[in-house]
């Protein structure tokens, strides 16, 4: 009997010891696999635009912050489970996500685009430089894209605005293949398993540069509609209990901090550093 009691006691005590309680630290969830937004370097450290921006915002808010890596497909569930307090993971603000969580104002926006390997038949696709799905009169471009994608395997990262767009039917019924990470999409675009891929433009540019593979972007830059309204900080919807109030305050703090960082030019500076282009907003 004694041994049994002791075991239970030991387990309880050790459970208490390992449950760290963070009262003041803001924990930021990020993927660490979506360069240049966020990435992991060879020493296992999280790096990238959002990592640096996150720490800058925390400095402004005078909060202590720490980044928590989380796989993309579990990002929103993990936020809801309170594994972390906010998301900074290149996550676009979309009405669909807003049903479940809330967003700060956007801090950066960057168009989505199709990409193929050099020599693909899609290379000659003739469309205007950009398309905003919020505006009218896109039928002709969408029709061109629809016929270009017909019968092709189009690869995207799972649970992204890009997958949402292809599933929406705007470009007909497409043969979509969804991967866990953008890295995997890029690999299979190179291997030839994917005929064409859809993602943030910067991730293709970054990949082509880093790998030396002949990945080129084709077609228009997409924005609006399923592509959302820029990338913001994802936060739980506030509520009346202690945590809900804290979340609501966090949202206010982040909005204020983004304003300050924008005015000081911090966001633009970081955007140019990582994207070689001012994608701040």
């Amino acid at each position: 009997m004694n041994i049994f009691k002791k075991t239970i006691l030991t387990v309880l005590v050790s459970l208490l010891l390992i449950c760290n309680v963070y009262a003041d630290k803001v924990r930021i969830g990020t993927e660490g696999a979506y360069p240049p937004w966020n990435d992991t370097d060879a020493s296992g450290k999280l790096v990238g635009f959002e990592i640096e921006l996150g720490y800058e915002l925390c400095k402004i808010m005078e909060h202590q912050c720490t980044f928590v890596p989380q796989d993309w497909d579990g990002m929103i569930p993990a936020l809801l489970m309170r594994k972390f307090d906010v998301i900074m993971a290149g996550m676009s603000i979309t009405p669909e996500r807003q049903k479940t969580i809330t967003f700060s104002q956007g801090y950066a926006t960057e168009p989505a685009t199709l990409a193929v390997m050099k020599g693909s038949s899609l290379e000659s696709m003739d469309t205007p430089g950009s398309i905003n799905l919020n505006r009218k009169g896109n039928e002709k471009i969408l029709k061109t894209i629809t016929s270009a994608l017909a019968g092709k395997t189009v690869c995207v990262q799972t649970a992204t605005i890009h997958q949402k767009f292809l599933d929406s039917g705007d470009v007909g019924s497409v043969n979509v293949r969804a991967y866990k990470t953008q890295d995997e999409v890029n690999l299979d675009l190179t291997s030839g398993r994917c005929d064409v891929a859809l993602a943030a433009k910067a991730s293709f540019v970054e990949y082509a540069e880093a790998s030396g593979n002949a990945v080129i972007t084709v077609g228009p830059n997409f924005s609006g509609g399923a592509f959302g309204d820029g990338v913001g900080v994802g936060i739980r919807q506030g509520g009346d209990d202690a945590i809900g109030k804290r979340d609501a305050k966090l949202l206010k703090d982040f909005n204020k901090a983004i304003n300050t960082a924008r005015k000081k030019g911090i966001i633009s500076k970081l955007a140019i550093k990582y994207f070689k282009d001012d994608v701040s907003m």
Partner: peptide
């Protein structure tokens, strides 16, 4: 299952 979760966020 994962796909449904990615749109409903209810694992």
């Amino acid at each position: 299952a994962k796909y449904i979760i990615s749109t409903t966020f209810k694992p």
